[in-house]
């Protein structure tokens, strides 16, 4: 069997392992894959140029940046923090859990554009999740802030991925149906959406447990001051 076209995968794995700039690695891998398929350099660059142009629409999220930047300058993140500071029951884990519920349900209704990292997570969800921890434990070490932010980004992804597949008109279900149809199988969109539900329930359960554990681990990490002890006795009484 001819294995040469796999050279692109090898380049990507090696490049990421050696921490070369990913954009550079991916470009080299794309050109190398084209050449390995036995095409001439002009054809490869043309095919690469066309493929890059066809993918332009993924950049649409950046259009949110002028207004988000403007609002950040006017104190949007600080405002998000203030709102959370007033809710005493808010913890980082609970707040992210609430966002997970909203993100998963709205995605399941086809409203996938209600979330997203540039427009929701950076200006609103991440500062709120940080503020919830600040309320309880005071100023946070940068390492902890980074960890909370990474969790905020992850919740957006998990809610989206395991919610959107329940909506019958979403891209993945359309793709599944058209592929199966080409292979001679007729499958109803509703039955595909139905069978995405067990996984959606599992995803919610698994990640909810992890967010509860995040709260515990933040508590263990940040409440080491001696005055934490009498407080715990007070709770028991």
């Amino acid at each position: 069997m001819h294995l040469l076209p796999l050279i692109g995968i090898a380049i990507v794995v090696a490049g990421f392992a050696m921490r070369v700039n990913p954009l550079l690695v991916v470009t080299i891998a794309a050109i190398a894959t084209g050449l390995a398929a036995g095409k001439g350099i002009v054809d490869v660059i043309s095919a690469f140029g066309k493929a890059f142009l066809d993918g332009r629409s993924v950049a649409v999220v950046w259009l949110a940046l002028p207004v988000i930047g403007l609002l950040e300058h006017a104190g949007l993140k600080e405002r998000a923090r203030m709102v959370i500071a007033r809710i005493h029951a808010a913890t980082t884990g609970r707040l992210l859990l609430a966002y997970l519920v909203v993100r998963q349900i709205t995605s399941a209704l086809g409203l996938t554009s209600l979330g997203g990292h540039p427009q929701m997570v950076r200006p609103l969800i991440a500062p709120m999740a940080e503020a919830a921890a600040e309320n309880k434990y005071g100023d946070l070490p940068q390492k902890t802030r980074n960890r909370i932010r990474a969790h905020a980004a992850a919740v957006d992804n998990i809610g989206l991925f395991f919610g959107e597949d329940i909506f019958i008109a979403i891209g993945s279900i359309l793709l599944i149906r058209s592929f199966l149809e080409q292979s001679g199988f007729e499958v109803a969109a509703t039955s595909l959406a139905f069978w995405a539900m067990p996984t959606a329930v599992c995803a919610f359960a698994v990640h909810a447990v992890r967010l509860v554990l995040l709260d515990r681990s933040l508590h263990a990490e940040l409440s080491r001051e001696p005055d934490a002890v009498p407080e715990r006795e007070g709770e028991a009484a």
């Binding site: 076209p5 990507v12 493929a51 950049a59």
Partner: peptide
């Protein structure tokens, strides 16, 4: 993301 989409297309061509 756009560059990776292009890589995916090149993978498919090869």
């Amino acid at each position: 993301p756009q560059m990776l989409a292009a890589l995916g297309t090149m993978f498919a061509l090869a």
